[in-house]
């Protein structure tokens, strides 16, 4: 899909008037006092937190992506394989030329929560931290009933309200569209949690699932041995994180990061691969040949809460 088409989709779906009104209110209230207006201007000019390294020129990965051979394509192959091919193509481009998009086809989502659990397991999320809950609701009345499900990863907004609010410059948008949290910078003020219109950020309170269990290693497996999987490294952003003491990511804001360590190895995000409804798609939206670009162009594609002007990278299909 071309850029023009992309913006057409935007326009169709955006309630411009409302957004600009809110924009105005937003800027106005920000700018109302003294020197703060300057901050407001920064925001007005650079709606996305701009960082010097955002142009990607200095994102020189020590290990460039090594493509691997996928089995030859066959008719009717699983979309997972198709998307892995798309992914490899995208990774051959410079980072600033790709834009990661996720598409969730709600007609195919069966509300199984495999994505939530898989993500929690992959990222070693402690209790209370969740990147992709699946919201479920019954609608209608007997016998005309419906059940709607809504998996909610981070929208990786192109205009992410969570970014400018961060006092610590701990969160920003990468050139490929992913909004990241730098755990080492984050002070844990939770401002971004409040700022996100999707409740997509949660705070790591340092808990463990095993906390409530008794430790009786002479009899049962015991808490200590049982809890090991929780403290093994999690791979987020470009690092590994071990949950120990009060070290990050404990005390940090956390959110879905589109499984950066996986995608940069040519693997699809966890929630995509495990999705039993094959309702979740991932790829480079700026590649017109990719499956996600195809899907974003569907007439029934939409984005959540367009009216807040966040321009999510996550599309839904209804």
């Amino acid at each position: 899909m071309s850029k023009e088409e992309l913006s057409r989709v935007d326009e169709n779906l955006t309630l411009e008037t409302d957004e600009s009104r809110r924009d105005f209110l937003d800027k106005f209230s920000k700018g109302i006092f003294g020197g703060l207006i300057a901050g407001g201007i920064v925001n007005a000019l650079a709606p996305v937190q701009a960082r010097a390294d955002m142009d990607g020129s200095n994102l020189n990965f020590a290990e460039p992506f090594k493509p691997f051979d996928l089995p030859p394509a066959i008719p009717g192959e699983d979309v997972i394989l198709r998307m892995m091919r798309d992914l490899q193509r995208a990774l051959k481009k410079p980072i600033e030329q790709r834009h990661w998009n996720m598409v969730i086809d709600l007609r195919k989502c069966v509300g199984c929560d495999a994505c939530s659990v898989s993500c929690a397991a992959e990222n070693k999320l402690p209790p209370g931290v969740i990147y992709r809950p699946v919201i479920q609701q019954e609608i209608g009345s007997y016998p005309n009933v419906g059940h709607v499900t809504l998996p909610r990863p981070c929208m990786q907004c192109d205009e992410p309200p969570c970014v400018p609010v961060c006092p610590a410059q701990a969160t920003w948008k990468r050139p490929d569209g992913i909004v990241i949290v730098d755990y080492d910078q984050c002070i844990g003020c939770r401002y971004c949690l409040n700022a996100c219109p999707y409740d997509a950020r949660t705070f790591d309170f340092g808990m463990e699932y095993i906390d409530g269990a008794a430790d009786a290693p002479k009899v049962f497996l015991g808490k200590e041995k049982a809890g090991k999987y929780e403290t093994e490294a999690s791979y987020e952003y470009e690092k590994e994180w071990k949950r120990e003491d009060d070290k990050s990511p404990i005390g940090n804001a956390r959110k879905c990061h589109f499984c950066i360590p996986r995608i940069e190895k040519g693997m699809l995000p966890e929630c995509v691969v495990t999705c039993i409804g094959r309702a979740t798609y991932f790829g480079d939206g700026s590649d017109p040949d990719s499956l996600v670009a195809e899907l974003i162009a569907s007439p029934n594609a939409f984005r959540l809460k367009e009216e807040v002007g966040t321009h999510p990278s996550v599309y839904y299909i209804k």
């Binding site: 400018p164 844990g188 940090n252």
Partner: peptide, 22 residues
């Protein structure tokens, strides 16, 4: 704060588009 000690760096390295940075 989750990491109170890190807050000191806000004094010399704040994000000025954040009201809290200000």
């Amino acid at each position: 704060l989750g990491h109170p000690l890190r807050a000191f760096k806000l004094i010399y390295d704040p994000n000025l588009s954040s009201m809290m940075g200000w």
